[in-house]
């Protein structure tokens, strides 16, 4: 990796002051599970690394009956184990508890998870100069793209957003607190992500001199769940993820939100059709799944994701509704 200067600020303001107006000069270091890799492969070559480990105000989970606020520096393991989160947001606890393995969950933070760079193997290969690194083309578009977007329409870069917490948080109407030179700002998580197309853009709307300080989730009594289809059970990224939330009354559901992960450059909010005002059954859930996958425009190798989307949505709805998990023998 390229040499750099290491900073250990103790406040958010100090940390922000160390950032630059352009990407690439300074990087934030939270748990280190992403940045280290990027540096090692020379994909990230900052001259300044700003550690958030000593910054006050990024920790803690504050829960009351209106909302739960999670500091951006909170580790994934803590999120997965927290009583209030397990109670109100089982989908979030489950997604956090499924990230990597125990070590990753002890190191990785909420902020890092939301702001991590994509996992595209062309992007992460030092010798491949793709769009995001200033090159002329997206190699995945015509190349090996089985782990890439299934909703590829109109995208010049066909990565998938790798965060499994983001879809759940969006389904829960979470907001993220962003701090920067313009001060503090609350952004709906649904608007926090973007599809990058070049080296001046990343996977979120953050400017290079802004950072996430916390995420707040309203407590509304929504049923919620997350389901991932993975290649193996230990230590893997999902092929496809579905996060859902809904209100329930007299056994019927409403305000159904379906957010798909690992199918598009940003978490993909899907239209929830065929289920509003009805009970969640295998049939209605399956219909919702099919509807969610409609409109997918897969790449040459991501056609298989369409079926997985249908299944993931179906299963997430059934889990959220407390129904029998028919896929477990």
């Amino acid at each position: 990796m390229k040499n750099f200067t290491y900073y250990r600020p103790t406040s958010v303001d100090q940390a922000l002051a160390l950032l630059d107006t352009r990407w690439g000069t300074a990087e934030l270091l939270a748990g280190g599970t992403d940045l280290h890799d990027l540096q090692k492969e020379y994909v990230a070559q900052p001259s300044r690394v700003v550690s958030l480990g000593g910054v006050n105000g990024l920790g803690g989970i504050a829960a009351n009956d209106r909302e739960v606020r999670i500091g951006a520096g909170v580790k994934l393991a803590e999120i997965a184990a927290h009583a209030a989160i397990r109670k109100h947001f089982p989908g979030l606890a489950s997604a956090a508890g499924d990230v990597g393995g125990p070590q990753i969950r002890n190191m990785g933070t909420l902020g890092g998870n939301l702001c991590q760079r994509n996992r595209c193997w062309y992007f992460r290969d030092e010798h491949t100069n793709c769009l995001l690194k200033g090159g002329q083309r997206c190699f995945a578009l015509e190349g090996e793209n089985r782990y890439h977007a299934a909703f590829a329409q109109g995208h010049r870069c066909v990565i998938v957003n790798p965060s499994t917490l983001a879809p759940v948080l969006i389904a829960l109407d979470a907001t993220v607190e962003v701090q920067g030179p313009r001060g503090r700002n609350n952004v709906e998580l649904a608007k926090f992500f973007r599809a990058p197309t070049g080296p001046t853009e990343r996977e979120t709307i953050l400017a290079p001199n802004e950072m996430v300080t916390s995420v707040t989730i309203p407590v509304r009594g929504l049923a919620n769940a997350s389901y991932e289809v993975r290649q193996k059970q230990s230590y893997d990224w999902p092929l496809v993820q579905a996060a859902v939330s809904f209100t329930r009354q007299d056994g019927k559901v409403n305000a159904v939100k379906i957010v798909l992960g690992h199918v598009a450059p940003t978490p993909q909010v899907a239209e929830a059709r065929g289920i509003a005002g009805r009970a969640v059954t295998e049939d209605t859930a399956a219909a919702a799944g099919r509807a969610a996958a409609e409109g997918a425009k897969p790449l040459s190798q991501t056609g298989y994701k369409i079926r997985l989307i249908e299944v993931a949505v179906k299963r997430a709805l059934l889990i959220a509704a407390g129904q029998k998990r028919y896929w477990e023998a």
Binding site: K232, S234, D236
Partner: peptide
Amino acid sequence: NYVIPMALD
């Protein structure tokens, strides 16, 4: 990315 089954598999 070279997917090897581990303990839970």
